[in-house]
Every structure is written in C-alpha cells, then in structure tokens.
C-alpha cells in the first residue's frame, strides 16, 4: 500500500508516495533536481552530491532522501545554484574533459550541467592528472580521463552470473574505475551499448561506431538538461 504525501519544493506544492526518493518525487511533479549519479529504480549511490537540497533546514542529497509528509525543500536557491555550479566546475578540473574531442559531447550530462549553469571557466585550478585509457576489451573503450565516479556502470552492468564487470579501484585521489577484462570479453553488443548509454559522460564508449548524431541534433544542443522534466508538467 503506497501512502500519498504532500510536500513543497521552493514553495510549490507537490505530491508523492511515502518513501519515494525525493529526486524522483520532484521529477514527477515537474521539478528538476540536477543529478549525475542517480537513475530511477537503481539503489542510489549518493556520490555526485549535485542534488544536495535543504530539507527543513538540513542539507541532504535528494537522491538518497525519502520524501516525507510536510517536507519543505529548498532547491533552486542562489545558495544551491552556486554550490551545484561549483561541483560541476570541480568535476571539470578533476578529470581531463576535452569536450571538443569527446564522442559524447552534446549528449553528456556533465557538459549539459556546465551549459545549464553557464560555466565559462572553473573557479578551481586544473589538476591535469594522468589517467590511463583501457582499450583492451573487445567492445568498449574505457576513457578514464572523463570518469566522474558516478558508479552507474558498477551498479548496472553485470555478467550473466551477476558478477560485476566494473568496479572502483584505489581510494581518494587515486580512485579509478576498473574493468574486468575477463568478464568484459563476454559482453554482448547490447550490454556494451547499455554501458555507454548509462554513462553520464564519455568514459564508456562502444567501439566501432561513433558520432552518430551530427552537431545540432544532439541531446543538449538546444534543450537544457532537465527541460524534459520541467516541460512535461506544465
């Protein structure tokens, strides 16, 4: 039995189901809370922190917080717009994001958030760390320069027996995404495509095909990220 609850986001009255994650409940009410790691129906990772909102005065990640009756959520406040822009900028300086040379450009969620917040230049110094590319598996390029550690691939992509094909390696600033070469060799085209599709950036690329959509017809060329959510509920 799902219990209907009422809450507000920036004063807007919303309805949801008790226990539903705030980020999903917001989307159902036409409110976009930006997020890079979350995917509906997946155990939340709570890793990108971009969806941080204020709930009854406390900072919470909207992707890990269940919606509750009477919650007063602050989302698009100047404070959080700046924090989100800062996190996007931080991701841009942490990895090596050369958009002009990236196949995912135009379809990349990170880049799209850069557009949304009109990031002209990051406020932080570029790290320019060396990261290795793994092109040894038959179906996939792993372009670690672009990884933002959202854990989507870790959570979704498994082999036939449910074993992880992707996992983290290291910790802190030596953290990297790792691919199991033995199991990756068993990936089908469908799984490889899925892995590329769920990757919010251009870290996982399917081999042999690329740049399918020309500039102008890509996901975020003219439509800001989140506008599908906002437009669906007017």
């Amino acid at each position: 039995m799902s219990e209907t609850i009422k809450f507000t986001i920036d004063g807007k009255e919303c309805q949801g189901t008790k226990g539903q994650l705030l980020v999903d409940a917001a989307a159902d009410n036409g409110v976009y809370i930006p997020v890079l790691c979350h995917m509906r129906d997946l155990i939340p990772a709570g890793s990108c922190r971009i969806c941080t909102v204020k709930v009854n005065g406390r900072n919470m990640a909207a992707c890990t917080t269940p919606a509750e009756e009477g919650m007063a959520v602050e989302n698009n406040t100047p404070e959080f717009l700046d924090i989100r822009k800062a996190i996007v900028e931080m991701l841009f300086v942490e990895g090596n994001h050369f958009c002009p040379a990236c196949e995912k450009s135009g379809n990349c969620d990170l880049q799209a958030l850069g557009y949304k917040y009109q990031m002209m230049v990051p406020r932080f110094p570029y790290a320019f760390e060396r990261r290795e590319i793994d092109a040894t598996t038959p179906k996939i390029f792993l372009e670690r320069n672009r990884c933002i550690f959202c854990k989507r691939c870790v959570r979704v992509i498994k082999d036939e027996e449910g074993r992880n094909i992707f996992a983290f390696k290291g910790r802190g600033n030596t953290l990297e995404i790792n691919i199991d070469r033995k199991l990756a060799a068993t990936m089908t085209d469908e799984i490889a495509q899925k892995a590329m599709d769920i990757c919010p950036v251009g870290c996982i690329l399917k081999k042999e095909i690329g740049f399918v959509n020309p500039i102008g017809q890509r996901k975020y060329d003219t439509m800001p990220i989140g506008s599908d959510i906002e437009n669906n509920h007017q």
Binding site: R49, F168, T174, L175
Partner: peptide, 20 residues
C-alpha cells in the same frame, strides 16, 4: 586528501583542492 574514500565527489576533490 589521502584518507577520503573518494566515492563522494566533493570530499574526494575538495580535500585535494584545499590541500593545494
């Protein structure tokens, strides 16, 4: 910066940025 687990981006990256 060494001890951040790294799985949440702000901790992983900001500690490095602040260290620098």
């Amino acid at each position: 910066a060494d001890e951040s687990c790294g799985s949440c981006v702000t901790c992983r990256s900001f500690n490095m940025i602040l260290r620098n």
